[in-house]
Design a protein around this nucleic acid. Sequence first.
RNA 1: GGGGGUGUAGCUCAGCGGUUAGAGCAGCCCGCUCAUAACGGGUUGGUCGCUGGUUCGAUCCCAGCCGCCCCCA
Length: 498
Amino acid sequence: MAFSVTTPIYYVNSDPHLGHAYTTVAGDALARHHRQRGEDVFFLTGTDEHGGNVARAAEAAGMPPKQFCDEVSERFRRLTTAMESSNDFFIRTTDPEHERRVQDFVQHLYHDGHLYEGTYAGLYCSSCEVFYTEGDLIQPGNLCPIHNRPVEWVEEKNWFFPLSKWAPKLLELYDANPDFVRPRARYNEARSMIAGGLEDVSFTRATVSWGIPVPWEPSQTIYVWVDALLNYRTAQEYGLGRDVTAEFWPTSLHLMAKDILRLHGIVWPAMLLAAGYEPPRGLFVHGYFTTGGEKMSKTMGNVIDPFEVIDLLGADALRFYLMREVQWGQDGDVTWEGLHRRYEGELANDLGNLVSRATAMIVRYREGRVPEGRNALEPVHESVAARLDAVDLSGALEEIWTLVRSANRYVEEQQPWVLARSDEPEQVRALDDALYTLADTVRSLGVMLYPYIPASAEKILAAVGDPGAITWERAALGTLAAGSEVRQPEPLFPRVEK
RNA sequence: GGGGGUGUAGCUCAGCGGUUAGAGCAGCCCGCUCAUAACGGGUUGGUCGCUGGUUCGAUCCCAGCCGCCCCCA
């Protein structure tokens, strides 16, 4: 089995923020989970670097575009590293290997008659090199929101992709794949967009210089979204130093926020169908964040910086918080307060403390060896796997947490500290069972939590004498060998000053 | 302007035609001591955005309105 998963490539006109971190964690958790299921995985992320918006941001920063892109892209790369993302490749659309392939792809469409020449007209700001709609502009007077100057009505010759023509094929694709877009509401949304009629899209720009030249008409550049979407294909062709499309194409799953559903659910599959490539197997569309009920923005000064969170609480804390707090597929509200609450209440108190108490008792009552016994708790790994198969990341985590809670309840019910005072064989056996249950349950939690909090999961597995045993079969209960060596680790999630 | 989503306990969210609407957190009471002063039990708390409609019966279906989010114009 092969599984390929992508985040969108992140646009370098602004710095990395929590939304980027979110999609990256989601992709990483899925990638790690599929790897632990024994599948070959290609997990892709990267940066999108062309277009008028980037050129403008570079100019504002007083830098040539490429140098600007190098710097911002590097910050995105640092975010993936800081978050312990296990992406197999980090693509940049300014990679020459990508640029060349984008030209080939577009040339191929042109050659096969899939593009036609048309007129693109709109309100254009020559400083931004961007077309605006009236709603974007400052009224009255149609002023550019960046430059506060009137925009002008500009008409340009562009090459168009006849998207409308592909509507029947797209509908076929949707009807044949009821899970093509998840969650269901987004599928309905995309499908009704198609059924309601599509506009052809301009694939080239005459007025944007920072882009990949159109091969047969080098005065124009390829529209940045065409360039960007193609990363999913080109990365598989060169990212690993060899072409892996035979194994990983079509992409199993594209992850994205709801703002770019139309591009991924409609334009992208149509492009691929036109070129004779198989469209992706599926999309998952997640929501947007607010903080304290309001949009995050620099001007509001309410931005939560992922680097700051990682510095303070660690990558696992951020990963856990994002996957736990926000219902996967819905919009959600994230705050520092909520982050601390989850960190203390769930990571430190529920999970961290469970690991501490379980290991401490085995060290204390059984010299640090896991006794013979059987696990008395109900397993959850099957429902966890089922949730993950349905790409329900927060739902799977919720399932896992029921086992964390059961284990803490189990300790209170068994009262191992009472059993430990007796030499009666029955009590000794009861204590063995209790301690085995705890060690084995903690271990199973380590396996299931590995996709979400990999560093902590590895510490858990090492603490119960089963280091590195992350394959999914080991998520089942009762697979810990008696005699395994247990030590009490340092607190996994130490208390932190707020 | 058009399309889509969303609005359920103080907070984060489940539920989605049918007995007294659920969970976690927070609050309150009690228990325990293995553990990161952690854990467990109990409990308080809701006109299910508003207004109509369909129905024997609606949080759940339909219509309109309001707030917030996204896309397209």
